[in-house]
Design a protein around this nucleic acid. Structure first.
Lengths: 338, 338
DNA sequence: TTGTAAGCGTTATCAA
DNA sequence: TTGATAACGCTTACAA
């Protein structure tokens, strides 16, 4: 039950193993006829090159690593779907690794992936992509990596991202276009990179519509359901309630909806609610939550492709921008006339 | 910038590479002093064996594959956390692969993992573990695999699981102990393995409490939020409403809560609601959902460990049972006196 | 355009 | 208890 090797293929095709190798790696200088004979032998034998041998002899392992920490399960799933899709198309495989931020326990794992497994590249997702120490380890070893939506350090290698500011701007614009003027905004966790960008987009859209910002209508949250509840209570217990609340992520938006429910406010008649992330829950609640879809899978796919095709390119792209999408659903309606 | 190899270690320790190999693989017949000299050389050089070379020469790749299809993101995340934990402890790495059930597109990927990457074993999660064709491919190649909560085929290799029937029994018992007698039950998707087991547990607990089963109180669902809504409407529009509804997963239970809300029924005062799965959403809704925690991460960890330690064991365990946990929260209360 | 031979860094064989 | 040396299956030089 020994598996078939390049030698078997060479023998059947009547060529040397080097020629088989050339065909397999799409190298030039192979006569068409020869190529066909080799390929037909490959097919006949159902030959598949051994990755360990390839990695040992050559410079490619056909493995891509994905580092993430502990964000929402939906984010991880999307990430992997995208990365896997790219890997599948190129004959690569995906190795996942959770990087525990707390302790320095991540270090041996990161080093192992580079020194032992010798992955061809690493995708760094939030929040790992913002940990300087991890980047240091990768740079020390000259390991190719691509970051997904990093918060800064824009000159430390390629990254893919989407425009959070513009997305928040567009959503705010949408609310304004429906007649809303008193729009509450709930900021996210102060240490998260997206927080500031999303707030900026909101503020700029309000300013562009000549809406003087009411500081009392901007509340801090921390991206959790509970913090959304707190912020919503502060907003909705004011003498003059806002007609819409834009929370900078879905979990907080759900908190807003819970409070509205408890206060007998009908969504969207009495209060419009918008979120950010388009998490799976957004479509489960009633009414369904208007939100912003982040192209997580697409970003991961783009990142994987950059790594996979690195050797083909003269110059790796420094950055790749992907589009968000406004998901308009039932939780947002026109401003009531009240 | 060439990396250090076993030869460097051997030179520093003043032994042959074979001796270094012996130490690294904990083989017998190495003098203590020699072992120590080797280990200190390993440490001094920060040497890490090359996995590709190991895989090529030996019979282990130190890679474990995880096949899943498209269940909830939370399930995937838990699965990976557990499997990764086991891998980390043993110096293994985790390769993930989504097995698309629809087409036969999965076949080349499964074969590639076995023939090219030569993973040391494969973990099969729901619903991949119930696809006979996938098992066939694995068995053809004599590839070690462990299934997580399979639906049947209990003689096709080792598996880990939990007792769905007992869990549903215990939850029903809990409702009965709170005075509920008219308990509605919502079954899951008929093709899903857990559906029958969970219903069985419910039915047995009811029978044990001498509750003649009212067929009208058992409704079909399909594990989706929407199907939960439908089933709940059928249950709650009856002349005599149930005082509690036990849905066989959380998504459907959320559907029940949504209907209850719409019908102005207070949960848990007017209606108790219980789910199954303890998905993340269970703690986000209000009141929080009473549910059953499935030890997904623990099952994955156990599965990985079975694969990793296979060579050490005389006889791989045929099955490993793990415990569920009743998560009692606000959505269930005593039966009202009405 | 093709082939020969030398690695790649381990583990396995077998002799010492 | 140790070590020389041959695999493992491929890619990379280099030669033809």
């Amino acid at each position: 039950m020994t598996s078939i090797t390049i030698t078997d293929v060479a023998a059947l095709a009547g060529v040397s193993i080097k020629t088989v190798s050339r065909v397999l790696n799409s190298e030039p200088n192979v006569r068409d006829g020869t190529r066909e004979r080799v390929l037909s032998a490959v097919n006949k034998l159902n030959y598949k090159p051994n990755l360990a041998a390839r990695a040992l002899a050559g410079s490619r392992s056909y493995l891509i690593g994905l580092y993430y920490d502990n964000p929402s399960p939906g984010y991880i799933a999307d990430l992997q779907r995208g990365a896997m899709s790219a890997c599948r198309k190129a004959g690569y495989h995906l190795l996942v690794e959770q990087i525990d931020g707390e302790k320095e326990r991540w270090r041996p794992r990161v080093e192992s992936l580079l020194d032992q497994v010798k992955v061809d590249g690493v995708i760094l997702a939030q929040p790992v992509c913002d940990r300087g120490a991890v980047l240091d380890v990768l740079e020390e070893r000259n390991a190719p990596f691509v970051r997904i939506a990093p918060a800064g350090d824009w000159d430390r290698g390629p990254y893919v991202y989407m425009n959070d500011r513009q997305a928040a701007y567009d959503m705010t614009d949408h609310l304004l276009s429906l007649g809303h003027r008193r729009i509450g905004f709930i900021r996210g966790h102060p240490e998260h990179s997206a927080t500031q960008q999303r707030y900026l987009g909101f503020a700029q859209a309000m300013a562009a519509a000549d809406q003087s910002p009411d500081p009392a209508l901007v509340q801090w949250g921390s991206f959790t359901f509970r913090s959304g509840v707190g912020a919503a209570e502060r907003l909705l217990n004011r003498p003059v309630k806002p007609t819409a609340i834009f929370a900078s992520n879905d979990d907080m938006a759900l908190g807003v909806m819970a409070v509205a429910n408890r206060m007998q406010l009908n969504v969207p008649r009495d209060l419009s609610v918008a979120g950010f992330d388009d998490s799976p829950i957004a479509q489960v609640v009633w009414p369904q939550l208007t939100s912003i879809r982040i192209p997580v899978a697409e970003m991961a796919e783009a990142a994987a492709n950059i790594l996979i095709h690195k050797r083909l390119q003269q110059q790796a792209p420094a950055a790749r921008l992907l589009d968000f999408e406004l998901m308009l659903r039932g939780s947002v309606g026109p401003a009531s006339l009240a």
